[in-house]
Design a protein around this nucleic acid. Structure first.
Lengths: 225, 225
DNA sequence: GCTAGCATTTGAACATGTTCAGTTCGGAGG
DNA sequence: CCTCCGAACTGAACATGTTCAAATGCTAGC
């Protein structure tokens, strides 16, 4: 009497996921019906719900997959690259690259942003571990850089949040190859690099340090750091 | 043969809106059914759709109302207050005050954030005029302050965006009387005031001006300013 | 090989947002 | 006062996400 997860289970799950994503990509998230997905995957409607608690959960599973792929890819590309600016550039641009064909349904990730109770809310309890994984990569990206205590504390969360903004920007970006978003990423990173340089300069630090300290204290107060 | 909008129409619309909000406040947005609303307002289900294109549109109408109330209130409270810091404080805290009892359904405003096509998307075409109205108040708030060209260009949009974040924060804020959000607002405003002081100081401006210029240029490039 | 038990799968039923073909009715035009 | 048009409203029908009781069929243990 052992709990045996049968292998064909994973296959079916995989099949449903792949089928759903293909349809989402082709017709959009709204238009595609759970019945469409089931029919295309040649299973009953209920089967999809055996593996995914909701339609949005399919997109969430996709995003988990993206994050694993992305982490692997980035850690590979990072070998021997040590500058913070360059590492973050690789991190963010490769994420855009991975997501670029999925803008039609990526927005589903944000559907429950305004609902703290929902298990799929970007900021909610239910996505805590995904957030942690995502922030971990940012922490790795900046690990070897020379940063003030405050920056080390703040940057991972700040970058994670900014990167959510980037994804939203990507979704709205109709420019050729989403250059607009790529450019914006580079622009922001340049400014960040500049700002970090300042905080490390003996000349400017005396002014910026108390500023940083205030920011950190404020966010700790709010339970965000 | 004139197109006569009958007065009882507005009454019914008002009734449906009020009834819906009462239910949303009491039971939450998800739980409350369009049939519940119609029943409570003693009209047919279809009546609600005669006045509001969707359930979320009811919340959107509520928010329009909030914005009008808020604008009036703030312009009143602003009389004789001229400091940027204080004016923004009044603006934001009074908004929190107005919204504080409606956190249960406020999140519905963000439901279509990830869908550029949706008429109710916060960043979409369909809400352009609401955005314009909202930004106008921020523009008024800072109108009399001494600000660099760049700040004048950037602040209204930036503040509007930050204020969206504030609302999201409010929704997630479970602290007593939402002090957490209020404190955060004050903290951020203090930092902003500090930053503005710097950009106006002959000593620091030479460093910050090119920084600001880059930010402005970047956002103009992205079509955001 | 047999069987019990559980993972897997089914498809009809359900809940709820939304649509729509009609019905009602107030008032403008005669 | 009558007629007619269109605003206001009705409620049944529809679409689709989701649930669930029942069916199926592996596989572990014998």
């Amino acid at each position: 009497m052992t709990l045996t997860a049968r292998p064909e289970g994973e296959n079916t799950k995989e099949l449903i996921l792949r089928t759903a994503l293909a349809l989402f990509r082709g017709c959009g998230f709204e238009i595609t019906t759970m019945r469409d997905i089931a029919r295309a995957a040649k299973v009953a409607t209920g089967a999809a719900y055996y593996y995914f608690p909701s339609k949005e959960a399919i997109v969430s599973a996709y995003y988990d997959q993206v994050q694993r792929t992305h982490a692997k890819k980035v850690r590979e590309e990072w070998k021997e690259k040590s500058g913070l600016r360059e590492r973050l550039g690789i991190l963010l641009h490769s994420k855009l690259e991975i997501l670029k064909d999925d803008r039609r349904f990526l927005g589903a990730l944000f559907r429950y942003t305004g609902d703290p109770e929902h298990p799929l809310s970007v900021f909610g309890k239910g996505t805590q571990s995904q957030r942690a994984h995502s922030m971990a990569i940012f922490r790795e990206a900046i690990a070897e850089a020379e940063l003030s205590e405050e920056m080390q504390q703040l940057l991972p969360s700040a970058l994670w949040l900014a990167h959510l903004g980037m994804i939203l920007c990507l979704i709205y970006d109709e420019s050729q190859d989403q250059q607009k978003t790529h450019k914006l990423v580079d622009g922001v990173l340049d400014l960040l690099a500049q700002a970090i340089e300042w905080t490390n300069s003996a000349f400017v630090r005396p002014f910026l340090q108390p500023f940083q300290a205030k920011v950190l204290h404020m966010l700790q107060d709010a339970g965000w750091a």
